[in-house]
Write a protein that binds this DNA or RNA. Structure first.
Lengths: 257, 257
DNA sequence: ACATTTTTGTTGCTTTTATAACATTTCTAT
DNA sequence: ATAGAAATGTTATAAAAGCAACAAAAATGT
């Protein structure tokens, strides 16, 4: 990476952490002239990443503040690029008046974050992560399945959660998983996750599995569905063609983004 | 609320939405001089709510979350000190192994924040505010009553919420209110709040009303209990002695902190 | 109604930033 | 190595913001 790029990257990182910074402070911190910073900012502003006011740079990264930030720092920072592509593909499937289940897990949380704003939706969240990423959407009715909070998964467990899921009917469910393979099916790591995911599948028309290719071939302790139980799989381009083909043959649409 | 307060509140709201704004823009938007805005910003900066750079105001993200936002940008900003004293008194009543209901509202959210950490508790939260203030407490089992999210109150509404409350039994319930008086009882502003508060009262041994003295004498549309239905009232020192005495005579303990 | 306090606006001056044009350095490819 | 390109620094001028002191207006209390 060129020095100038590295500097801009550093600036961005600093801005996201600190919320804002003056151009003069950036110049002295990075030991370059203010003109250099200005030119950098012009570039970043052109990309829509920052906004430059009078002497001050403010990161414009979509609400990287407080709640959303919390939701993402906790998420495993692995395969973020893939997960984001998957999330965007998933979000682009959503249509006005859709009723959505958003599962726990970092990929599903990203789906929540990428959901179109301004169109009427009903969004039923199963994890705090997903919820925090949609709360505040003015056009959406946001529902959270409550219960006992599990900090490691950000999911609420309990009969109330299951009951709530059973009471609703969704047009689309975005479900995550810890592992998926053709022979042993789709798996997750906990018993309560299993109950929730199964309830979600039973309450939804379109069942969409969002899982990056690192999950492919893996198994975890709790089996909750076969791949063919899903109407669609959204994953990245890391799956072998043979696998893609055989999943498609079993009746599940596949998007590899 | 005084005009100046209203203006500062508007500014804060605008800042949280937009991330940042120049002083000159705020001045023309609110049709006051830049000096007025500058002085406002000095005030808000003193409270640690914003940071002023050269001509630009940036909200500080640490404080912009749930509670502070609610407690300081909304109309209740005036009574923060009282609420905090009330919250601390309430929190000091809590003992190990207690099972707690924490209602919605800024005062109850403060109770949640002031709860002792490290002692085993079961904490059932009825609002996002309260929840975010206790999530992460390692010694506590944290439960959130889910349902349809209401942004203006940060509360989750729905049959699931009520069912969850009915299913639990608490040793202490910290309940908030919009108004309370001896003749017309304790009132809140919404129907769903009413259902929740009544369910909480029916599921709890000790029923503790936390409400600052500005609520005294007021009525709101929804009546949900008499003052004598509460085992205890925690308020500040703004109630007339005669009222304190007559509430005590009716069998409700009163702490005026 | 009056005086007092608080809030807001105005002015002049200082300091900081923006911008453009030009000079210099650093990088890159042959 | 060297020319050309890209990146960076410098300077001068214009524009905008900061600041302090004072004036005017509005709110408050007696």
């Amino acid at each position: 990476m060129a020095d100038s790029e590295k500097r801009r990257s550093l600036i961005q990182q600093y801005l996201v952490q600190n919320g804002a910074c003056s151009i003069s402070a950036l110049a002295s911190r990075l030991e370059v002239s203010t003109m250099t910073i200005r030119r950098d900012m012009e570039l970043l502003a052109g990309k829509g990443l920052v906004r430059v006011y009078h002497g001050v740079v403010v990161p414009l990264k979509e609400e990287a503040t407080s709640l959303q930030e919390y939701a993402l720092t906790k998420a495993e920072a692995v395969h973020v690029q893939e997960k984001l592509r998957i999330a965007r593909a998933a979000a682009s499937m959503v249509e006005p008046e859709d009723i959505l289940f958003i599962d726990g897990g970092s990929t599903a949380a990203l789906v929540a974050r990428e959901l179109p704003r301004g169109i009427p939706l009903t969004i039923i969240c199963l994890s705090l992560n997903a919820f925090l990423n949609v709360a505040g959407n003015p056009a959406a009715e946001v529902i959270l399945a409550g219960g006992i909070y599990h900090e490691e998964t950000h999911i609420f467990e309990g009969p109330e959660s299951i009951e709530l899921i059973r009471r609703y009917r969704a047009t689309k469910a975005f479900v995550s998983a810890n592992g998926f393979r053709e022979d042993l099916g789709v798996t997750c790591s906990n018993n309560y996750l299993l109950s929730i995911k199964q309830a979600v599948l039973r309450s939804s028309i379109q069942k969409i599995l969002v899982a990056d290719s690192s999950k492919f071939g893996k198994v975890n302790s709790c089996y909750f569905a076969d791949l063919s139980d899903f109407s669609e799989l959204i994953t990245d381009d890391g799956l072998p063609d043979s696998a893609l083909q055989s999943i498609r043959d079993s009746g599940t649409k596949v998007q590899a983004v």
